[in-house]
Design a protein around this nucleic acid. Structure first.
Lengths: 240, 240
DNA sequence: CATAGAAATATTGGATCCAATATACAATAT
DNA sequence: ATATTGTATATTGGATCCAATATTTCTATG
């Protein structure tokens, strides 16, 4: 709910009201019912709370949110556009599953994309960015709860990527990460992935601190590819 | 309409009916009203028939398609997810405009992405792909109607990119191209862009025929960056 | 008992209706 | 005249209703 509103809330300051110390919120961008349902479903799918193949009944979801099916349908159509669910006419929506080939392709894509974003980011990294990244890196290393690894992992990477100042790139990063986040979380939880991820994060951070864009980029690429390979091994085992 | 249905139609063949030569369509995936509205609006926006900032009244659109506002709203929410329109609660939707900075960023992104796709595609190009690409290349060179340049341009590039056999990459290519296609069309029509594009297409095709992935990739990158630079010059002139 | 067909039920897609909000414009006050 | 308030209209967001389709259950029949 808060998240939904935040996602539509921009810094807001109408001119001529400087004297009114009224921490005002731009009401025009308050979250609609559809926004709330969309954010909640997206989160649940990304975090793996809804299993792939799980049916999403409009009526049931509407009742859970105390609303009608209309906002639910709008949320579902957005999720489908994003690739997180698939729908069949008159049959309904299910949480999208990915084949191993699709997962491999998305990891390959992410490796390329995030390496490039990192290359663009390093030259813009200031003290504050690096401090924040260091904090998130430590947080990831210390986090004992596997359920939170996905989230802290994402925060660490984003804190660095933001320095690239490329909103469009980041939007694509978000989309591609959304699609495979569930699997990544499973891999972190169920293998030795965290130890390795931790070491790789530290190496990436080091390269950023040293201002070595080329190295940071290459390490990011390898980091993503490593996770992908490890995940694919894991899935081939699981799915056979 | 046809396009809408196509986008949901996958190769379909029920077993046990091999003798029935009845080019059957999977009715389950027939286009819904929302699909039709979505495809039509998307096409109109991409081709620049709807000017940026143009507002999209639900009722008006619904009447144009002889339907109610419900499918229109679903189409609009998909378009917003894709970034082709922006909406404000209780105020409605308008065709999204891009700042010059945003346009530059998307071109930079495309240059990276399409160069990579080309690198991956070249090793898989067979005779048929190359013949098709050659035909599209000629078609682009011969096309006298500026309104069709955008379309033929896209066909040429896609025919090569498809060899990469990377559906996810292609989906992202489509999304990024959708966002700036309008401007690209304007640039092709209103500058000497076509002549240059034609030469560059031929060079790219040559590299593909020679099987030189690295060269084809670099030429693709430069091709996109050239178009972007030329467009930005044009827009800075126009918008000042 | 197994199975094909029919009836009943559930679910989605779309139309219509109502409420919330925005916009345009008139009325009023300073 | 200008600014502010109130009112009418337009538009969107959401609820409810109906039609189209899918799924399940029941029944008849071999």
């Amino acid at each position: 709910m808060t998240e939904a509103r935040q996602s539509r809330t921009l810094p807001f300051r109408k001119p001529g009201f400087g004297h009114m110390k009224l921490d005002a919120v731009d009401v025009r961008q308050a979250a609609s019912a559809a926004d709330i349902v969309y954010e909640a479903l997206r989160k649940a799918i990304i975090e793996g709370e809804l299993a792939e193949g799980q049916n999403l009944r409009q009526d049931q979801i509407a009742q859970m949110f105390n609303t009608s099916r209309i906002p639910v349908r709008e949320a579902l159509s957005r999720l489908e556009q994003e690739g997180l669910i698939t729908t069949q006419r008159y049959k309904g929506a299910v949480v999208a599953g990915l084949s191993i080939e699709e997962i491999e392709e998305i990891f390959e894509f992410r490796a390329m994309l995030e390496a490039e974003v990192m290359r663009l980011a390093v030259p813009n990294m200031d003290r504050r960015t690096l401090d924040a990244a260091r904090a998130y890196c430590k947080e990831f290393g210390r986090e004992p709860d596997p359920a939170k690894w996905g989230e802290t992992n994402r925060r660490f990477h984003y804190s660095l990527y933001e320095a690239a100042r490329r909103p469009y790139y980041l939007q694509i990063v978000r989309g591609s990460l959304d699609r495979i986040d569930r699997y990544l979380r499973a891999q972190l939880s169920l293998t030795d992935g965290v130890q390795r991820a931790k070491r790789e994060h530290e190496a990436i951070l080091e390269a950023c601190l040293a201002g070595d864009a080329e190295l940071a980029s290459r390490l990011t690429r390898d980091h993503v590819l490593d996770a992908g390979r490890s995940l694919v091994v894991f899935l081939r085992e699981e799915r056979s």
